[in-house]
Simulated scan of single mutants.
Amino acid sequence: MNIQKSALAGAVEDLWKKYLLSVTAQDMLLGEVADHLYVEDLDFSTSSDRDLISSYVSIGFGDDIGEAAWAVSHGEVPAPYAELSRFMGEEEIGDRLFDYLVSHIRRHPAGDILDNPYYRQVRVEGKTREGHITLTTNDYLPGELIQTYHEGFRKEDPFAYGEGAFFDSPVVFPVLIENGSVWMSVVLSEIESMKEPLERAAGKVITYGLGLGYYTFMASEKEDVESVTVVELNPHMISLFKKKLLPHFPHKEKVHIIEGDALVYIKKQEDGAFDYGFSDFWAGTEVGLPLYLAFAGACSSFRHTAHDYWIENVFIDAFFRPAVMVYLMEKVLGRKEAPLDQGKKAARILRKFISFLDREPISLKGEEDLYHLLDTETLVTLVRKFAAQS
């Protein structure tokens, strides 16, 4: 990579400040999602969403914000969070964290999920068990914090990777429970994250991973989709799906299920046998990262079958854009920063990715070049190339 350091120093410093604020606020946000934050007695009749969400953040995050601002400003947090105090004082840190959370939490009416065609057609009642998997329902209370899908790259907020929301009335949704823990659910983040892959589905479609069949259902509903072939490894999931979910599909004749391992199947799949493919056989980012890269590498030789990957941009947000930031800090400012603790497996992958970046014929001459490199579309292209070479 060809980098003009003197021209980029100020811009990289500014990006680092944005990065530190973003990860501090969003770690707080996703921590409360994991802890099932519930803010009750909200006045949902208020005409201003801004006022409602400000009240929500004050009640739900007020203590956390104060503690975080104090800890950062007094050096009581690990690197790189503590360095935020280099740019602002304790009061400003608290104010900026508050404003950031307000701008990344939304109120949703229940209809945003309940009016979806899948919810109108597919009914899940009681509990059905197959092997170690149980099909049942769960619910959200009004004011319960949930994670939603972060979509798109914005220059003013380049390091966002988590969004939050709450419903203003109860929502009941289907879930799969594996060995006592929720493994998969059709919730708002699932619906939002599959919007674009569903728009692109046409002709003969293949998808890897069955789950609750949301993608399969929605794709089969499209007039321009001829068939939907599903590759699923788990026979218990296939059995549950055929007994309890598939009967509700209006176009079940389009659906064909193959029991098998996605990574084994893709290596034998003929280029052009399908018009469009969609991979969805990982449950989240940490476990999904190596699977996503392995599958992207296996698909890299396809020229006649377009292919997309579930939550690909979330992998970019959570892993690869922060890796680029660490790389820029070292190459431009000469500072070797510790990345966020993302696990040993992810750390090994990202070290290889940084070495890959260093060899790429990319020229960074000004601020616009930096933002172009950080853009999701650019990074997806680079990561897929990295996966093909790994």
Rank of each mutant, 00 (worst) to 15 (best):
E178I: 04
L212G: 02
M237A: 13
G203S: 09
A283L: 13
P235H: 04
K254N: 06
R200N: 15
G260Q: 05
V230R: 08
G260I: 03
I177R: 08
E270K: 15
L233A: 12
E232S: 06
D280L: 10
V255I: 15
W282N: 09
Y265R: 12
A219W: 04
T216Y: 01
F281E: 04
H236T: 05
Q269F: 00
K242C: 09
G211R: 09
S220Y: 02
V264W: 01
E232W: 08
I206R: 07
V182M: 13
D280R: 10
L240M: 14
L245S: 06
H236D: 15
L188C: 00
I258H: 04
H256C: 04
V255F: 03
A219T: 08
E221T: 05
A273E: 15
L245W: 06
K243N: 10
S220W: 03
S227T: 15
A283G: 02
H256S: 12
F249A: 11
P235G: 05
V186L: 12
L233Y: 14
I206A: 04
V264Q: 13
D275M: 05
Y265H: 15
L198D: 07
Q269R: 14
E253G: 07
K242L: 13
V186C: 02
K242Y: 01
E199M: 11
T216G: 00
L198Q: 13
G260S: 04
D261T: 05
